[in-house]
Design a protein around this nucleic acid. Structure first.
Length: 465
RNA sequence: GUGGAUGUAGCUCAGCUGGUUAGAGCAUCAGAUUGUGGUUCUGAGGGUCGUGGGUUCGAGCCCCAUCUUCCACCCCA
């Protein structure tokens, strides 16, 4: 047996069952994205480090995987620099590339680079792995997939409404009950203004975001440690308390309208109203909750922010996103607003697994196995196989000539192949084929056309994962 | 990056205060059954006990280091 083989920390192999289930999720996402007019793009696994560094804050820079230059990467380093062992400076000399950390920043780079080749408003989706040198935990990996969908180059709130429709379509198809949580950074800005500290918006949002996790008192404690004065905190308490109790969206809007007086905040409320009304009118039936405690960590959001939570399982959010007004600005293209979201494929996988909601067809592979009795029979079967393939039925013949029947049947059984065709001397003489249904055990002698009809009617799910 | 646990067969786990040749269930393979799987019965293979050091007459068990996985922070999908 091989010794000492492993894969890097935080990475995974995917077995066929995993892959089929993952592809089921990915193709559901792709189909819905396509349905709403979004187009696929891909970007390279690596980007120039200059495109990545400084985009995710100080923490983010530490979590970037850097790629060592090829060739003699020390040739421009003098002994003095080597002796100093200043890691950051050395790294910047010997690494020019890094693995992508998310899909949003590469997308911004993509838009700026190809601005004359793409059609605005540009609606794209992108499903690719990203890498973070984080410490792995359950459900957290160093290599994981993000499924991003964004529209860039349009300020219209219709885009937000469309995202809500996409969420509804996807989770209906996946058969997961979800709640959409909405908020708006402008409203948070309004709250910060109400507390007379609009300059501390980021600290405030980071703390408020933890409300349902750590509770009101801890949030206040954290803010107090970050320099919030007690009169500010007193004013914040009713807001936190309101957010913790069940309320309708109308009540929430009323409550927040009484607090917010600044222009930006009012604009946020107006946007929230628009989105809630349009969502209702467009017939979205998924529960949408306006929650002032939703904040999201990322600092580039400027308007609507959203998260999707699974109702029947405790797992955190399975989708999140929001509007950003100037993402492409970091690459020198100002004034382009976008809105988008990211689906957590791994978490959706966990939800489906916990609730046992993967369709069982997902791990069916081939539909038909031809038993191999010997040289004459396998030649005979090959011709029939080609006919099945040409009608789109996936079929295979057991490759070992004349292998034991038991072995071939077990193969079909463990590969979950629903039909077995048995062609031996008798069948060749009669011109008919014996078709065995592996679920019922029933076996019939049929001709090829009958078999094709029967199998086709049995394939409910035509999509191949 | 900080703190804490964990590691025994492919998987889930037993293994006494350190004492012969480390066990079970499931899985795998073979046979019972040479044209019939999933059930049943019989049998077989598979472990340098995560890795490297140390203590000891003797280590799966004790000590140190290291890696893995997991948990809590930080941050995040």
């Amino acid at each position: 047996m091989a010794v000492n083989i492993s894969i890097p920390k935080g990475t995974r192999d995917f077995l066929p069952l995993n892959m089929q289930r993952r592809n089921y999720i990915f193709s559901t996402l792709r189909n819905v994205f396509y349905l709403h007019g979004y187009q696929p793009i891909e970007t390279p696994a690596m980007e120039d480090l200059s495109a990545l560094l400084g985009k995710y804050g100080e923490e983010g820079d530490k979590l970037l995987f850097r790629i060592l230059n090829s060739g003699n990467f020390l040739q421009n380093i003098n002994d003095e620099e080597l002796q100093q062992k200043n890691l950051n400076r050395l790294a910047s000399h010997i690494c020019e590339k890094g693995l992508r950390y998310d899909l949003t920043v590469p997308f911004a780079r993509f838009v700026v680079m190809h601005r004359n080749e793409i059609i605005f408003p540009f609606k794209r989706y992108q499903i690719q792995p990203v890498w973070r040198a984080d410490r792995p935990q359950k459900g957290r990996y160093r290599e994981f997939f993000q499924c991003d969908v964004d529209v860039i180059g349009s300020n219209s709130l219709l885009n937000e409404v469309e995202l809500l429709q996409i969420i509804e379509d996807i989770f209906i198809k996946l058969n997961i009950n979800v709640t959409i949580v909405l908020n708006n950074r402008k409203i948070l800005h309004g709250i910060a203004t109400y507390l007379s500290c609009p300059d501390k918006l980021v600290v405030l949002t980071v703390a408020i975001d933890k409300l349902d996790k750590i509770g009101k008192d801890e949030v206040l404690k954290e803010l107090s440690e970050k320099g919030f004065e007690s009169n500010m905190l007193q004013k914040l308490i009713p807001v936190l308390e309101f957010s913790s109790k069940q309320s309708t969206n109308e009540e929430a809007i009323n409550f927040i309208s009484n607090i917010i007086t600044d222009e930006t905040g009012k604009k946020g409320i107006e946007e929230m109203n628009y989105i809630l009304n349009y969502a209702k009118e467009s017939g979205i039936s998924t529960k949408i909750k306006f929650d002032v405690s939703l904040a999201r960590g990322l600092s580039y959001y400027t308007g609507t922010i959203l998260e999707v939570k699974a109702k029947d399982v405790e797992i955190g959010s399975i989708c999140g996103g929001g509007r950003y007004d100037n993402l492409t600005g970091i690459f020198g293209m100002d004034g382009v607003s976008g809105v988008g979201m990211s689906f957590g494929a791994d978490r959706i996988y966990d939800v489906l697994e916990k609730l046992n909601k993967f369709p069982k067809e997902v791990n069916e592979s081939t539909k038909v196995l031809f038993v191999n009795f010997g040289v004459t029979e396998e030649k005979y079967c090959l011709k029939i196989l080609r006919k099945l393939h040409s009608t789109g039925i996936s079929a295979e013949i057991y490759p070992e000539t004349g292998a034991k029947m038991k072995k071939q049947m077990s193969y079909a059984d463990s590969k979950k192949i629903p039909f077995v065709v048995i062609v031996g001397e008798n069948e060749i003489k009669s011109g008919k084929l014996s078709l065995k249904n592996m679920q019922t055990g029933e076996q019939k002698e049929l001709n090829l056309t009958e078999i094709i009809t029967l199998i086709t009617s049995n394939i409910e799910q035509k999509t191949k994962y």
